[in-house]
């Protein structure tokens, strides 16, 4: 039995001769939330459009549930849910009418239809506003309804393109929670196209980082952090007064890679030296330290490092 929901093999896409995707390879296992990261214009949306059968690859293959999602494969399209940049909602129709329309298009059986829509409206927290026209909804409400719409056919894979883009922090958190619930409670595979690193770190189990149409890294979130890890030391000073002096001192050393200060907290990226050497140097120079902690690099730091390296490489 194929354990992969998505398989991308040597995928190439060119527009008018210029390559947008260059031999992309990755796999997404069934039931996992996969983050597809990359800056704007890196080829994320193009990859997703190929997986959805909206674009044809120039070379290579995209297999969705073991089959190619070409124009004529309605069977595959019936098994996937899609939330693109646009929510796919009709502003003149009510929330209920929108879901009913898509339920009919996906052939959701009539006896289950009403219950299904009710459940999805409750899931999105919009049941009380089911009869309101979508045009009156806020961006966050539309996004949540869009997510509910994408779930109307009980999909095996959910493709989400920037699901929290343009949302306020509370709505972002809610949408992220909804995605997590879908994966945990329903076992749905989620392919998340985003440049929101905190979102990926919070909800994804695996991720790929795309830059200029090439996959630069693909691993579990922990694996990504480990493989690009450089030791980080978080030093909490006793008072802020000596923060600047500490920063100058650390920056003058060869073994420190990067230093940042935020109030009493000084973050030091080490370049080969042990934390005890740094600590000893501070103490010798009369700097009072309250706490020293070894920290792991965040996904954001890994991502920025990769992007920096790519730019240098170019």
């Amino acid at each position: 039995m194929n354990m992969n929901a998505i398989e991308i093999h040597d995928l190439v896409k060119s527009f008018n001769g210029s390559p947008v995707l260059n031999k992309i390879n990755f796999k997404v296992r069934k039931g996992e939330i996969f983050g597809y990261l990359g800056p704007t214009g890196s080829g994320k949306t193009t990859t997703m459009r190929i997986m959805l059968g909206l674009l044809k690859p120039t070379a290579g293959r995209a297999l969705i549930l073991g089959a190619e999602p070409d124009e004529h494969n309605g069977n595959i399209r019936g098994k996937i849910g899609v939330l693109l940049e646009n929510n796919g909602l009709y502003e003149r129709l009510s929330a209920y009418q929108n879901l009913l329309y898509y339920a009919r298009l996906y052939g959701v059986h009539e006896p289950d239809r009403v219950e299904k829509i009710k459940g999805l409206l409750e899931f999105a927290g919009l049941f009380d506003r089911k009869n309101e026209k979508v045009g009156r909804f806020s961006t966050g409400m539309k996004r949540k309804l869009g997510l509910a719409r994408a779930m109307i056919n009980d999909p095996e894979i959910l493709f989400l393109d920037e699901p929290t883009h343009g949302l306020d922090p509370e709505s972002r958190m809610r949408v992220s929670d909804l995605i997590l619930r879908l994966s945990k409670e329903e076992g749905i595979t989620v392919f998340l196209n985003t440049h929101d690193l905190s979102e990926v770190e919070k909800i994804c189990s695996n991720a790929a980082i795309l830059e200029s149409g090439r996959i630069r890294a693909c691993d579990t979130i922990i694996g990504l952090r480990r493989s690009h890890d450089t030791p980080i030391l978080e030093i909490t000073l006793l008072d802020t007064g000596c923060a600047e002096w500490t920063l100058n001192l650390l920056n003058s050393q060869d073994h420190t890679y990067n230093c940042e200060q935020d109030g009493r907290l000084v973050t030091v990226t080490l370049n080969g030296e042990s934390p005890s050497t740094v600590l000893a140097m501070l103490v010798t120079n009369g700097i009072a330290v309250e706490e020293v902690k070894n920290a792991t690099k965040s996904l954001e730091a890994v991502y920025l490092d990769l992007m920096k390296r790519e730019r240098k490489h170019k």
């Binding site: 909206l54 899609v82 646009n86 298009l105």
Partner: peptide, 10 residues
């Protein structure tokens, strides 16, 4: 852009 979502239906 709604047409894009419609094209992803069966």
């Amino acid at each position: 852009g709604i047409i894009e979502t419609l094209l992803c239906t069966p």
